[in-house]
Design a protein around this nucleic acid. Structure first.
Length: 493
RNA sequence: GCGAAAGUAGCUCAGCUGGUAGAGCGCGACCUUGCCAAGGUCGAGGUCGCGGGUUCGAACCCCGUCUUUCGCUCCA
């Protein structure tokens, strides 16, 4: 048993901690839960809101040329035709019954076609791809299966052609708009927030008198039918994205791509994530719209995984919307080029930064989760959260529940509550109360003792060091305010 | 979807080869308590995931089912 024990700070510990202390609950738990959906609890929502707020302000307040919007989750169905989601994300899947491996049926056939081409029969490969294309367009999944079998395609692992039927995995959720189902039209829940930005590109550009280069930021929910959803809140069917699309002059996109790469990496470090737990991971295989793409990965307990993606999306999206909507998506650039003439009309290129709010939350939580064992062998668990994102900024604790200390503590709470999320507690021993605050990552505990009644000073205890210092009540607001300020975070950007 | 494991108190878990449920922590009340999960007394809380079956008797055995976790396949 002992050698099987998970190390401290494993995902299991973090999931248990998140649930136990009100950060993340499984969705619909009283009905035995719903896979890959989670709810944020009373402290989780504070932490998540703080993270979103830091991101939003880092984007909009620190950059003159970035503004925000809040687009709807419902969008015109053609949006997803334009973005490529309708065509590219209906994957036909097939399983091999012997090896239990799953493949994309189209990829198996494409591999076969490539094999023909490599063996000097490119025309046979072409024919195969055309047949596959017709079958997929007709949604003839049984035909696709027959094609795989007639081509003699076998599983590379088992070497057999003992295939299951081909099944369609639609990664977008759909629903109907319109109360009467007969008239209702099919509509999708957006699989990414980006398209809400693209379709508003000209609205924002014109009404905000924005000049390229400029960016539009947005935070919002998105929905994907993941084939499997695992690793806690890392893969969720309903999740929240924080995206910024930066519109720039064609040919300058790589400069901006590099700049945003660095800016975004610094952001995560400014939140207290050490550089050793972060890395860039360039994509070897680019998506249909990108000419460069890199992930910022965080070292989760289950390994380095994507937290944020930075993509150079070219003019793919705007061009595609222009084609389908028949509305020009051009920008007239008055700036003068090397020849002294205006750059004129063009469809801007786009650099996207897209971070999962839930993934950032999980990364920050994993990074903050700390177990320390003292010399006496006692284990102390606490969340080493950056004070700016901690759910509770300070707890006000009377040393004992008598002799006027609670009343004095309430006074202090009332002085602070308009500026900070403060917590008051008078039950149990002071040590127990300190510990409870450590477990939710409260950076400061203010203890009201008998000396407070004499000279209006309190002790303020620091979460990470557990050290205390005595300061005047009048200085609390400034002291805490400085520690939790965004300015301290942004200084590092 | 496949494979494996699991589901018993709020949490973590025990419960032997079947004899109708337990601990620690937590929670509530009271007493004690001057700084890092303090002590005492009392108390609340479970149709053992759900449905069948075998049996005199099922938390335990069998079948089904649901949910969760881990691995694999996909991932903008």
């Amino acid at each position: 048993m002992a050698e099987q024990q998970e190390p401290a700070g494993s995902l299991k510990d973090i999931i248990a901690h998140a649930k136990e202390y009100g950060f993340v609950f499984p969705s619909s738990e009283i009905y035995d839960g719903l896979q890959a959906v989670y709810d944020y609890g009373q402290y989780g929502v504070e932490l998540k809101n703080n993270l979103k707020s830091v991101w939003w302000k880092a984007m909009t307040m620190l950059h003159d040329n970035v503004v925000g919007i809040d687009a709807s989750i419902f969008m015109h169905p053609l949006t997803w035709k334009a973005s490529g989601h309708v065509d590219s994300f209906n994957d036909p899947m097939i399983d091999n019954k012997d090896s239990k491996k799953r493949y994309r049926a189209d990829q198996l056939l494409e591999a076969k076609a490539e094999e023909y081409a490599n063996n000097g029969h490119p025309e046979r490969g072409e024919t195969l791809l055309n047949r596959m294309g017709r079958l997929l367009d007709a949604n003839d999944l049984e035909g696709v299966r027959e094609l795989i079998i007639s081509e003699g395609i076998v599983c590379p692992v088992s070497g057999t052609d003992n295939w299951t039927e081909v099944r369609q995995f639609n990664l977008m959720f759909s629903t109907q708009v319109g109360a009467v189902s007969d008239d209702a039209s099919l509509i999708y829940l957006r699989p990414e927030t980006a398209q809400g930005i693209f379709v508003n590109f000209l609205n924002v550009q014109k009404t905000g008198r924005m000049k390229v280069p400029f960016g539009i930021a947005q935070i919002g929910k998105a929905f994907r039918n993941e084939i499997v959803a695992r690793q806690f809140t890392f893969r969720m069917r309903e999740f929240e994205q924080m995206e910024m699309q930066f519109f720039c002059r064609p040919g300058t996109e790589m400069e901006w791509y590099d700049k945003w790469k660095e800016t975004r990496m610094k952001f995560h470090q400014a939140l207290g994530i050490p550089a050793s737990k972060l890395r860039f991971k360039p994509h070897d295989k680019l998506a249909h719209y990108a000419n460069a793409a890199v992930d910022i990965e965080f070292k989760f307990p289950f390994g380095f995984r994507e937290m944020e993606g930075i993509h150079s999306r070219t003019d793919f999206d705007l061009k595609s919307h222009q084609e389908l909507s028949k509305k020009k998506q051009q920008y007239f650039d008055n700036d003068l080029n090397e020849d002294g003439k205006p750059y004129g009309n063009y469809i801007p290129y786009v650099v996207e930064t897209s971070v999962g709010a839930d993934r950032l939350f999980l990364a920050v939580l994993c990074n903050a989760y700390t177990e320390e064992t003292s010399e006496e062998g006692k284990t102390r668990t606490y969340l080493k959260l950056h004070p700016a994102v901690a759910p509770i900024k300070a707890a006000v604790l009377p040393l004992v529940k008598k002799d006027g200390l609670p009343e004095k503590a309430r006074e202090i709470q009332n002085q602070l509550k308009y500026d900070f999320n403060v917590f008051y507690e008078e039950r149990d021993s002071i040590g127990k109360r300190y510990t409870r605050q450590d477990l939710i990552g409260t950076p400061f505990c203010i203890a009201v003792d008998y000396q407070t009644l004499e000279d209006n000073t309190v002790t303020i205890r620091h979460r990470d060091s557990t050290e205390q210092e005595r300061i005047a009540i009048a200085d609390l607001k400034a002291k805490i305010g400085h520690a939790v300020s965004l300015e301290r975070v942004f200084e590092n950007l």
